[in-house]
Design a protein around this nucleic acid. Structure first.
Lengths: 358, 358
DNA sequence: CTGTTAGCGCGTTCAT
DNA sequence: ATGAACGCGCTAACAG
């Protein structure tokens, strides 16, 4: 027979005060009322001695606050998205708030069913991690529930509030670098099934236009018939193999590009292998760039020159913003768009263009 | 002015029945009492029409059940652990239960502070993902709270209940394969800071002994002065670089091994690069094996021959077991150890040993 | 400064 | 077969 959980009234009785007083003390209520220092100490001491643990369910039911924030991750198993999830958790922990991440399928089965995660009163607010295909439904739902949310690393197209990398700057950094290396024939590769990639393609095109570089259709390789989501290694492998093939097709053209800008590091890794399979040497024969800054970028050979998204900063800003929103949901100043500067990481996959290829 | 959330009493009023009846109907209570079919239908219809959503906080407070399970992940950003987290979420979703994953730091700051995740009554049970350094404290705590837990992919050393890969079988598969290729001089590499790696080293030694192969100390490369946890890319990169160096040291010996069995795919990726930096060709000059079956294994060149842990199966079994435990916490039959068979994936990193090296 | 009261929204006895 | 009343454990408002 186990002893029942010790509750607020046990400690009230033990201390000879009322439960209301105990509640105030344990919650550090300082507004309006004040508690005698010695009473406070005694209560705190007794609470510790009895091993009191507030029942968060009961507190939340009453106060409409759980003190927990939720995050929705479409693809927690992906290298980038996995790290992003980890970083928001670490950021939350540094602020002493609990953060749990749930998964959201992105296949368009009943949107309602997908939203069950959000339904409960379990979370005070949400972080929406990465591209969510049904982003608008989710955002609307959350607004109806009066639960604030912040989109994180989800492209510029989402509404405020959001925290993201300044990807336009990223492409500028990248194209300036390639330009300086002498590259003029630059291709792009990625799957347009990702909204983020669509946006990056747009940014890439804009960057090319600014430099006055032409971009023939044969220099844009997209693989769009792949599921938006990779639920396991097998799906992931299929996409990778396809990426390799697309890279090869790109490089086997009569007038091949001297550089391939890949929409993500993942695609760049495929391009690296594709080039190798054709007997091409990177970066001597072709330069390849990534985008994101995942670990795969320094594991591969040659190591990848890429744009790193500073996810620690993005995550920290997003958590701070959400916390502020939970406190002041109506503050218009918080409806903002946070853009963090990315960083060019020069490693081994780019080189000056050779005379014979130019 | 927003309409208040629709509650159980709104629908009772609308249907002209009492809230008790509504509760029974919506919870499909069939024990003892029965409800008239037409009453039931009417109530259900009204509930749907009004868009009724039970307040999970209130239900849970009363019933002591949230219907949600929690998972604790030490390293959700790692490639393997990230996928594991994803797989348990998918498995839970298939069973229509919500699963949220929280992070647990593994540095020995106050154990109590780390356990806050577990404190609440928010979860009906827990999945403990991977090696937790303070596993015993966590398990004990959960037992005191009467919350069942299942350890997942955490090594054979943890107590029941647990679900894991049969790693002894994995090493047998691996060593049989290498033996068949003619390898007799086999080295091991990994960081003993991971409990899992310590166990794998033991398994490796046993497997070598069974084959009557000698294992000189110079054939065991360990890097133990690295943090148990990798919180970001930078830490991860440091460990990777160190792995590369250790592999090179291993291969530069006077009498180098013909094969290196790496404790995880991550170490094998480092070995691959180390060999390449020495001008060695894999698998011609040295064979390298991994363990886990992460995506990095087919992205690298040459692709990695490895033992795949079938995490989908491990995850599904773990979720089923936990769900059963939540229903029957005292059932001794559920205090079990589930071992799933791993699979040898032959790719490109192993070859028959050359005469000149044997 | 502290105690009392009234719920939060639901599930579950009982009694009918 | 259904309804009334109570309580889960706590916080908030107000009274003292």
């Amino acid at each position: 027979m186990r002893k029942a959980r010790v509750g607020i009234r046990d400690i009230a009785e033990e201390a000879g005060v009322s439960i209301g007083t105990v509640s105030k003390i344990l919650n550090n209520k300082t507004d309006g009322v004040r508690i005698g220092a010695e009473t406070r100490e005694r209560v705190v001491e007794i609470a510790e001695r009895l091993g009191y643990q507030a029942n968060p369910l009961a507190s939340a039911l009453r106060s409409k606050r759980t003190g927990i924030i939720g995050a929705v991750n479409r693809n927690p198993g992906g290298e980038f998205m996995g790290r992003l999830g980890q970083q928001v958790q670490l950021a939350a922990r540094r602020r002493d708030v609990e953060l749990f991440v749930g998964i959201m399928k992105n296949m368009p089965d009943s949107v309602e069913a997908q939203l069950s995660i959000l339904q409960g009163q379990l979370f005070d607010g949400f972080l929406l991690l990465g591209d969510l295909p049904n982003y608008r439904d989710v955002a609307r739902k959350l607004r109806n529930l009066n639960k604030p949310h912040v989109s994180v690393a989800a492209g510029i197209a989402v509404e405020v509030p959001m925290a993201h990398t300044d990807e336009a700057l990223g492409f500028k950094l990248l194209l300036d670098y390639l330009w300086g290396l002498g590259h003029r024939k630059i291709a792009f590769m990625g799957s347009l099934a990702w909204p983020l990639v669509r946006e990056r393609l747009r940014l890439f095109k804009e960057g090319m236009a600014v430099k006055g570089l032409s971009l023939p259709g044969e220099y844009i390789a997209t693989m769009d018939n792949f599921p938006y989501n990779l639920e396991d290694f097998a799906a992931s492998e299929k996409l990778f193999r396809s990426t390799v093939d697309h890279a090869k097709a790109l490089l086997r053209q009569a007038n091949p590009p001297t550089a391939i800008v890949c929409a993500t590091d993942g695609f760049a890794l495929g391009a690296l292998k594709g080039a190798a399979q054709l007997g091409l040497r990177v970066p001597r024969d072709v330069s390849i760039t990534g985008f994101d800054g995942i670990e795969g970028g320094f594991i591969c050979q040659p190591e990848l020159t890429t744009i790193r998204r500073p996810i620690e900063k993005v995550a920290a800003e997003a958590v701070d913003l959400l916390l502020a929103l939970i406190d002041s949901p109506e503050d218009p100043a918080l409806q903002r768009r946070i853009l963090i500067e990315p960083e060019l990481i020069v490693r081994e996959s780019c080189a000056p263009v050779l005379e014979e290829n130019s």
